[in-house]
Simulated assay, not measured.
Amino acid sequence: MRKLVYFIASTLDGFIAGPDGADPTGPDGFWPIPEEYVRHLVEKYPETLPGPARAALSVTDPGTCFDTVLEGRRSYELGLRVGVTDAYPHLRHLVFSRTIGESPDPAVEIVADDPVETVRELKRQDGKDIWLLGGAELAASLYSEIDGMIVKLSPMTIGSGIPLFSGGAPFDPRTWDLTDHTVLNSGAVFLTYARAAAAAE
């Protein structure tokens, strides 16, 4: 069965964006992206690079981890503000929203249904794993369905901001098995976790 994997960048103090929710890696962002960090993504997770970045880097590798990406309305609208209607044209792209009517892009599926039921149906389908891009609210609503996490841990703190999971997540302590890790010279660490067997039952 396919797995839902929360593949996300986080600061040391557990934030995925600043308090305003803006793209922390954008032109006015505070989040540095070292060259070796990008190189690691290209080598191991090429499908997680947005279409414009793939084109700029001449990346054509379809990747081996994911063929579907899920994101919430706020995350999706970050791209819309700069004219990008589908940041991941190489993946099946689902956006969860009850307020977006018609999709701004024919390749992007707007889903108003319950995220949990949608993910359970996706897991039953054939294919590679499902990438939960975020944001924090969607991650919170899918907390019980997350089978794995790949945390791109940045060697920085910001004090406050948008957490890995919003306050809508239930209090439900879970343990995770560290299955892989990569430490870059820049101090960034890629941590791969799978839900511990007891928690997955």
Rank of each mutant, 00 (worst) to 15 (best):
T48G: 02
T68S: 09
D129A: 07
V111K: 10
L4S: 01
T11A: 01
K123F: 03
V38S: 12
L138S: 07
G63A: 08
I130C: 07
R39W: 02
D177S: 14
T64A: 15
Y143H: 12
V151T: 09
I130H: 10
A200S: 14
W176Q: 07
A17H: 00
D67Q: 07
A188C: 11
Y45V: 09
S144W: 03
L164M: 14
A200K: 11
E77M: 08
I146D: 08
D126A: 14
A22R: 12
S186H: 09
E145H: 02
P115H: 11
G14Y: 01
G51E: 12
Y76D: 05
S141G: 07
L178E: 09
R73W: 08
T48Y: 02
V42N: 05
E109G: 03
D180C: 02
D147T: 07
I100E: 00
P89Y: 04
T64V: 14
P163L: 06
P106Q: 10
C65E: 12
W176C: 06
F7D: 06
A194T: 09
L191P: 03
V84K: 05
A17E: 00
E117I: 15
E145M: 07
L178V: 08
M1S: 12
T175Y: 01
S97L: 10
M156V: 12
E77T: 12
A199H: 10
I130E: 02
A199V: 00
E117K: 14
G29P: 03
T85P: 04
E117P: 01
L184E: 08
F7P: 00
Y193I: 04
G187A: 11
P27F: 03
P62N: 10
T182L: 14
A169L: 04
S166Y: 09
C65F: 12
A196W: 00
E137I: 03
A199M: 12
T157C: 13
L70K: 06
D67E: 09
L133S: 07
T25L: 14
S154K: 09
F66P: 00
F165C: 02
G167V: 10
P34C: 11
S103K: 08
P32Y: 11
D105C: 13
D67I: 00
P163H: 08
S186F: 05
V42L: 05
S160H: 08
G101N: 09
R98Y: 05
H90R: 13
G51D: 09
L80I: 11
E102A: 14
T175H: 06
Y6R: 01
S160Y: 00
G134S: 07
A169V: 03
A22Q: 12
D147C: 02
I158H: 00
L94T: 02
K152R: 12
F30I: 12
Y37C: 10
A53D: 14
G63R: 05
G29K: 10
Q125M: 11
V111G: 07
L12I: 13
N185D: 15
E71I: 03
T182G: 01
S144R: 15
